[in-house]
Design a protein around this nucleic acid. Structure first.
Lengths: 256, 256
DNA sequence: GAGGCTCCTTGCGCTGGCGCAAACGGGCTA
DNA sequence: TAGCCCGTTTGCGCCAGCGCAAGGAGCCTC
């Protein structure tokens, strides 16, 4: 499933990742390791450690020394950043196959975010030093890593721009589309965002309040764009959200 | 000059960069090339092309294929991103010694921003392919590049969080501090932000309007925090701005 | 199945900041 | 020196979205 809107917002549902594959297969499909010769891949695999994290516990906390790079193989992880006042912002929500904590590829950094398991999760990790070692030995990984990071930079630049210039409704529409493409799962009614996301979480991702999120979502539900549940959103009519995200509809905030 | 506030906002004035150094010296001081052995540095230098750009013209435009990585050696460059509606957002303003267009280190990307010379500028650039070649041959560069990118990711994550959660006043204070540390020049009255920045530019950086920026700046001027001019801001009392940026002062928006 | 915890909804009042319009003024050119 | 261009200031009205409070509804535990 894939469509493209006027300015290039793309919604692509990842094939649901089978998580019981042997590690070597998973690694092979990970962007960071693509194009590596088998020997290198094996070296990567030998350096990997597996780990588990129960729902609600943390892979790492913001401010911890960034000593490990993680690859999620099972579950869901929320990457959040704290505000000085103690509240927090949800920066990314990731599923299996996603690399996180990649900041550890740079030396001497602290994790800028916390990584909390939204459900029971499993992953593998590499020590920063050993992964850097691998990068030095297999420069293809360096190019891959740069691509990954470049993509991340672009994403946040774009989200920054959105937040700076666009209305809440539009930002929320984009956020849902992004989530649907990243962690969406096709169900009977539409695309389920397969991650327990509270209204508060969505508010944090879009720079607003849970009240406003709730209001807008309910508006959309009456229009048939989405189906709502407790910590659940199903996108029924993505094109409708795209229409909101773009300029195809008048920003109808209040009408009978 | 350097101080540190409660949550780690750091203001460090770069030693004013002498721009007439030989290229080899400049390269040596650039983060991307630090730690390279002389032979590698020479290879880098051989692959570099020089270029000029008059005030108001562009090194590249958003959407162009990202084929070159630039290092600014003279002048000032504004990195902006367009909104669908044609307006734009100023993402970064950089001075000599800064690398930009680094997205070209990843393959097949388009520049996500435009790079406009704010004044007559000069720089050197490398073709994407040849720089990738260099990265493959000198993996230390790969680590350097990852550090750079990681830093960039962190910066935008943090700015995203700020924009999502903080009031305009505070965002503007942070933006000025950031600009002062990046492109600040010590003058008699304080730290001049050495870059022709309109109120509109500041508004774009902080996600607000030029009116609001103007109002807040004037407020600060009467409080003695800054000195204002046409396309000019001098930070007189950085600690005061830090106090605004943090929670040290009541957010006094309107008082006699 | 009762209780309780958490998340969600919705009404209401309010305000921070937007948007416009008009006037001002600094610095350039002729 | 006059005039113009462009950036800036400031007043005013307004509304999108915030913040709170009260009530409702899933879902879990016991």
């Amino acid at each position: 499933m894939r469509f493209r809107d006027t300015i290039g917002l793309v919604l692509t549902l990842k094939a649901s990742l089978v998580t019981d594959l042997p590690l070597s297969d998973i690694l092979q499909k990970t962007a960071l390791f693509s194009g590596l010769e088998p020997a290198a891949l094996q070296a990567v695999q030998l350096a990997a450690h597996t780990c588990q994290s129960a729902a609600g516990s943390y892979f790492f906390l913001q401010g911890d020394p960034a000593e490990r790079v993680f690859l999620l193989t099972r579950g869901r992880v929320k990457l959040t950043q704290m505000n000085p006042d103690g509240s927090q912002v949800l920066l990314r929500a990731v599923g299996p196959g996603t690399l996180f904590g990649a900041v550890a590829l740079a030396q001497g950094e602290l994790y800028p975010v916390s990584a909390e398991s939204a459900e029971d999760s499993g992953g593998v990790y590499w020590g920063a030093a050993s992964l850097q070692e691998l990068v030095l030995r297999h420069p293809q990984m360096a190019l891959n890593a740069m691509s990954l990071m470049a993509e991340r930079v672009q994403e946040f630049q774009q989200r920054f721009r959105e937040l700076a210039t666009e209305r809440v409704e539009r930002r929320l529409a984009r956020a849902l589309l992004r989530l649907a493409s990243q962690t969406g799962r096709k169900v009977a009614e539409g695309v389920l965002i397969d991650l327990p996301l509270t209204r508060q979480d969505l508010a944090e991702m879009t720079g607003t309040t849970l009240f406003t999120v709730s209001r807008i979502l309910n508006q959309w539900e009456t229009r048939g764009l989405v189906t709502l549940g407790r910590e659940r959103v199903i996108v029924r009519f993505p094109h409708g959200l795209v229409a909101v995200a773009e300029d195809l509809l008048p920003p109808q905030t209040s009408q009978p």
